[in-house]
C-alpha cells in the first residue's frame, strides 16, 4: 500500500466515523426541540426512497423510465411483493429473481 492510499483511507475513515459519531458523542448534552423529535420518524423512509428511486429509474446515469428497464420492473415487483408478504427476505429474493428473469426475457 502506498502512502497516498493510506492518506485516502484514513481521511475517509475520519469523515465517515465523524459523521456517525458526532451527535452520539454529544448525546447527553443535546436537547432536541419537539418538532425535530417528532420529525425523526420520517428520516428512514425519506433517505431510503431518495437513494432507491434514482438508482432504479436511472440505473446507468441516464433516464430510463420504461418497461425495458429491468431495474425499474424488478423494483416494482419487489415493492408489490413486500407490500403483500411484509417479509424482507421474500422481498429481496423476489426482486432479484424478477430482475434476472426479466433480463433473460429481454435478451431472448
Amino acid at each position: 500500500m502506498t502512502a497516498n492510499e493510506w492518506l485516502m483511507i484514513l481521511g475517509m475513515m475520519g469523515v465517515t466515523f465523524g459523521i456517525r459519531y458526532f451527535l452520539l458523542a454529544l448525546a447527553d448534552r443535546i436537547r432536541m426541540p419537539s418538532p425535530v423529535e417528532v420529525s425523526l420518524q420520517y428520516i428512514p423512509p425519506a433517505v431510503l426512497i431518495a437513494i432507491t428511486l434514482p438508482a432504479v429509474i436511472l440505473p446507468h446515469g441516464e433516464w430510463h423510465f420504461s418497461f425495458t428497464n429491468p431495474y425499474l420492473v424488478a423494483a416494482v415487483i419487489a415493492a408489490g411483493c413486500g407490500l403483500l408478504t411484509k417479509n424482507l427476505l421474500a422481498t429481496i429474493a423476489c426482486g432479484l429473481a424478477a430482475f434476472f428473469a426479466y433480463q433473460i426475457l429481454l435478451s431472448s
Binding site: T52, A55, Y71, A75, G82, K86, L88, T91
Partner: peptide
C-alpha cells in the same frame, strides 16, 4: 435498490 425497497416498506 431492491434491498432498500425491502427496508423501506
Amino acid at each position: 435498490p431492491i434491498t432498500f425497497i425491502g427496508m423501506l416498506i
